[in-house]
Simulated scan of single mutants.
Amino acid sequence: KAEVMNVDQLLPAHAQWQNFSEVLLHSPMLRYIGNSLFISLIVVAFQLISSAMLTYAMVFMKFRGRKLLFAIVMGTYMLPTAATYIPSYIILAHMGLLDSYTGLIISDAVNIFGIFLLRTAFMQVPQGLIEAARIDGAGHWKVLWRIVTPMTKSAYITFGLISFITMYNSYMWPSLVTNNKELSMVSQGLRSFFIEGGAYGTEWPKVMAASAVIVVPLLILFAFTQKWFINGIGGDTGIKG
Rank of each mutant, 00 (worst) to 15 (best):
L10E: 08
L10C: 05
P12F: 05
A13S: 11
Q16D: 12
N19T: 09
N19D: 15
F20D: 04
S21T: 15
H26D: 07
P28T: 09
P28Q: 04
P28M: 07
I33C: 02
N35E: 03
I42V: 14
V44I: 07
A45D: 00
I49K: 01
M53V: 14
M53A: 11
M53F: 09
L54S: 07
Y56T: 06
A57Q: 07
A57E: 05
F60R: 15
M61R: 15
M61N: 12
F63K: 07
A71C: 12
V73D: 08
M74L: 15
Y77R: 09
I86L: 14
Y89P: 06
A93I: 00
L97K: 03
Y101R: 09
N111Q: 11
L118V: 11
G128E: 12
I130S: 00
I130T: 10
R134G: 07
G139E: 13
H140W: 11
K142L: 14
L144N: 08
R146P: 06
V148C: 10
V148R: 07
T149G: 12
F159D: 06
S175C: 02
L176S: 01
V177Q: 07
M185I: 15
L190G: 11
S192Y: 04
F194W: 13
E196Y: 11
E196W: 05
P205H: 05
M208F: 11
V213N: 02
V215T: 14
A223R: 04
T225I: 01
W228M: 13
W228V: 04
I230L: 05
I230M: 11
G232H: 05
